[in-house]
Design a binder for these strands. Structure first.
Lengths: 205, 205
DNA sequence: TTTCATATGTGAATAATTTAGCAACTTTAG
DNA sequence: CTAAAGTTGCTAAATTATTCACATATGAAA
C-alpha cells in the first residue's frame, strides 16, 4: 500500500471495481486492460489506473491486469478477513429482508445476530438469532465493528448505544440524519434520498 | 433557478439539506443560519450558502433562512409534483419490505404498483397491486419515470425492458453492475458495496 | 432615524480530483 | 534477436469543488 492517503472519491469506486471484476471473471475472462474495464463500467481508464495505484503496483506494463490477482487484492482490502461479524439493529420488515438476504458470506463476513427493542420480535430468522436491544452489551459478538441500522424510531439514541459498545462503522437505512463522532463512520443507504436525487436529475436534463 | 448547471457534489447534498430542515422544523425551529445548519449536518456554512445559491436567492442577508420557504423550495425540486408514480420491480423479501414501508407519500410520490416474474408473487401487498412482469407495458402507470429494482436475477435484461417502457430513473438494490444509456440515470442502493467501503475506511484510519 | 451587530451571496483563492501525455516496460511477430 | 505494438504508472495540466474574504443587505437597539 502506498503511503499517500486514498481519496474519498477513489474509495467509493473500489466496490464498483470489485463488483465488475467478479462479473468479468464469471464470464471466463482472466485478464483485462484499464481501457476495457473503463468502458465496461463507464470510468476513464486513467482514473482506474490511478485508483489502482493507491493500493500498489497491480498491473504489468504492456500486458494489463490479471483479474484473479485484482480480485484477491481488492477482497483483502474491502472484505477484511471475511470474518467481519455484522449485527442488524431493527428486526422489522427491512431488517428481516436483510436477514433473509443470502449473499453475505464470502463478501464481507456474516450477520452474526440481530437486535430489536420490541420483545415480540425476539426469535430466530434464517438461522440468525434476534435478541432484545436491552441485552446489546451481553450479546454483541466479540470484535464486532459494523452494524446495519434498520430501526424506525430513536435512531440517534440507538446509534449512541452502538458506539458505546464498540461499533465504528454503521450502515443506516433510516431517513434520519444521525450525528457520530469523528472516528466513527456512517453510510446512508437511503431510498428516499436516492429517489429525490434522481428526481432532481431527471428534472434538470 | 440560476443558469449555471448544478455540480454533482451539490446535487448529492440536496436531499441531506431537506432531511435536516424537516428535522429542524419538527423541533419547532422556523428560522436558521447557514452556520447552525452547517454544524448540525457537518457541512461548511459557505458550502451550504453556495449550494443554495444554485437554486436561487433563498436567504436574507443579516437574517438567515426561513425554514418553511427552504423546505417548500427543495421539495419542489426534489419531490417533483409529489405525483411521481414509482414502480417496484421484484416482489421478493426486499420488494415487499419496500411496499410495506409507509413513508412514500408527501416525499416523492407513491408506489403505484409492482411487478414480478414469478406468477406466484402476483397479488396485492399493502394495497399495492403486483402484476406479472410479462404485463409490464400493459400495467405501467402513465407518465411513470422511476423504478425501484429489487430483482435477484436478470437485472440487466429487466432494466433494458424498463427503459423501453419509458423509465428514465432507476434505483437499483441489486449488487449487479448495470449498463444504461446516457440519458437514463441509475443510482445504486447497495448494502454490500456500502459495507465494503466501510470496511476499507475502518481498516485505513 | 441612525448605528451596530450579524448573515447572506459571490468573486477570488485554494484544494481536491480527474484527465492528458509520455517514458518505461512487456509481449508478440518476424 | 530485434523491432513494432500496446499498456501501465507517473508527472503535469485541466477541471471541479471547497473555502476565504468581503461588500451588501437586514433586523434590532438606542
Amino acid at each position: 500500500m502506498n503511503k499517500r492517503k486514498v481519496p474519498k472519491a477513489t474509495m467509493q469506486r473500489y466496490p464498483l471495481y470489485l463488483k465488475a471484476l467478479k462479473k468479468l471473471q464469471s464470464l471466463g475472462i482472466d485478464r483485462i486492460m484499464s481501457n476495457q474495464l473503463g468502458s465496461f463500467i463507464d470510468v476513464e481508464p486513467t482514473t482506474i489506473r490511478r485508483d489502482f495505484s493507491f493500493i500498489g503496483t497491480l498491473g504489468k506494463q504492456g500486458y494489463g491486469y490479471d483479474i484473479e490477482t485484482l480480485i484477491e487484492t481488492f477482497e483483502g482490502h474491502l472484505g477484511g478477513t471475511y470474518n467481519e461479524k455484522i449485527i442488524i439493529v431493527g428486526a422489522g420488515n427491512l431488517g428481516r429482508a436483510l436477514m433473509n438476504y443470502n449473499r453475505w458470506n464470502n463478501v464481507v463476513g456474516e450477520v452474526a445476530c440481530a437486535f430489536d427493542i420490541d420483545e415480540s420480535k425476539i426469535g430466530v430468522i434464517n438461522d440468525i438469532p434476534v435478541y432484545p436491544l436491552s441485552q446489546l452489551s451481553k450479546n454483541i459478538p466479540v470484535g464486532c465493528r459494523i452494524a446495519i441500522l434498520t430501526v424506525s424510531h430513536d435512531a440517534q439514541e440507538t446509534v449512541d448505544k452502538l458506539i458505546e459498545n464498540g461499533i465504528v462503522g454503521i450502515i443506516s437505512f433510516t431517513h434520519d440524519h444521525i450525528r457520530v463522532p469523528k472516528d466513527v463512520f456512517i453510510k446512508y443507504v437511503d431510498v428516499i434520498s436516492s429517489i429525490q436525487e434522481l428526481v432532481f436529475q431527471v428534472n434538470n436534463i
